[in-house]
């Protein structure tokens, strides 16, 4: 083991981190209170509400994230308009009752999958191919899947018969793992320079495991709730941390035109919130199965 070397300068990272968590906690607690107050008694309705909310947040995250990232990519390919446009449509469908909804959600499902294909094609043709350089900096491999997920959650909310909570729970678990993997890759790129960067690679995978188990075990469903709440909290804390990250980069928010693109991505962490909300909605149904 090499000796630790003295650091030439320090920042109060722990204090900043705890402050961020505390702020997220306040926001999260208030939101959770409202959410609980309006919780439907019927587990099926609760699931529908959770999935719809999850789909809405994921759509919003995809709208902003793909909008910003494709703007960085100068919308060189007209296909780059598809993701943000569809995310906007999906977001709309989660808010209003419309008979076009199933088509929009299905389209989101398909386009998300195609996006993964596009992005891998893009990586593959670059110098270096699927090396770490391109995984770090080229089109993100997993990101388009969030659009598929929004579509899937939207569809599931509309067809509770086909998409029973026990079937959706493993999907949500997988989604959490995927999102944690993406956060892990990008935080690895950031050398985990702040210890709080480990949060999204530890808590969500744990929540994912227990959520998956919930589809067969009502006991697991009870354990899942606090873990999913924690994951949801990360989805709120993330943008707070990331906006601090922009602030502490060169030029801070004054340099927003660069840092909104180069700094830590503001709209990425809410994906955790979206998935966690969907999964939380499934829990009442899963708890009762026993």
């Amino acid at each position: 083991m090499p000796k630790p070397v003295p650091e030439p300068s320090r920042r109060p990272l722990i204090a900043v981190g705890l402050g961020g968590i505390a702020a997220a906690g306040l926001i999260g607690a208030a939101a959770w209170k409202l959410w609980r107050r309006a919780e439907p008694a019927d587990p099926g309705k609760a699931a529908e509400r959770g999935l719809r909310a999850g789909a809405a947040i994921l759509s919003l995250a995809v709208l902003l994230d793909s909008g910003i990232e494709h703007y960085r990519g100068e919308f060189k390919n007209p296909a780059m308009f598809v993701a943000p446009t569809l995310a906007l449509a999906t977001l709309g469908m989660t808010a209003v009752e419309d008979e076009a909804a199933p088509y929009v959600f299905s389209a989101a499902l398909a386009v998300g999958a195609a996006g993964v294909g596009f992005h891998s094609y893009n990586i593959g043709k670059r110098a270096g191919g699927f090396d770490m350089l391109n995984l770090f900096y080229a089109a993100p491999l997993g990101a388009p899947a969030a659009l598929s997920l929004a579509g899937l959650f939207g569809l599931a909310a509309e067809h509770p018969g086909i998409a029973a909570p026990a079937r959706i729970a493993p999907v949500a678990a997988l989604a959490l793992l995927g999102t944690a993997a993406e956060a892990g890759l990008l935080h690895f790129r950031g050398a985990f320079q702040n210890p709080f960067m480990f949060a999204p690679v530890t808590l969500p995978p744990l929540a994912a495991a227990v959520t998956a188990a919930s589809s067969v075990s009502p006991e697991a469903a009870q354990v899942a709730r606090p873990l999913l709440l924690g994951t949801a909290l990360l989805g709120i804390a993330g943008p707070i941390f990331h906006s601090y990250g922009i602030h502490r980069n060169m030029g801070g928010w004054h340099n927003w035109s660069q840092m909104i693109l180069q700094g830590p991505p503001l709209p990425a962490p809410p994906a955790f919130l979206g998935i966690a909300l969907a999964a939380l909605g499934l829990l009442p149904a899963l708890e009762r199965r026993g």
Binding site: E7, P8, S9, R10, R11, A127, L133, R189, G190, A191, Q193, N194, G245, R248, N249, M250, G251, N255, Q258, Q262
Partner: peptide
């Protein structure tokens, strides 16, 4: 073979030092 070069400029924050803005 080629490689991105190892560089003494930060790709992530370090203490009070900012990461590279290129």
């Amino acid at each position: 073979d080629w490689s991105p070069l190892p560089l003494a400029t930060l790709s992530a924050p370090r203490g009070m030092a900012h990461p590279c803005v290129y």
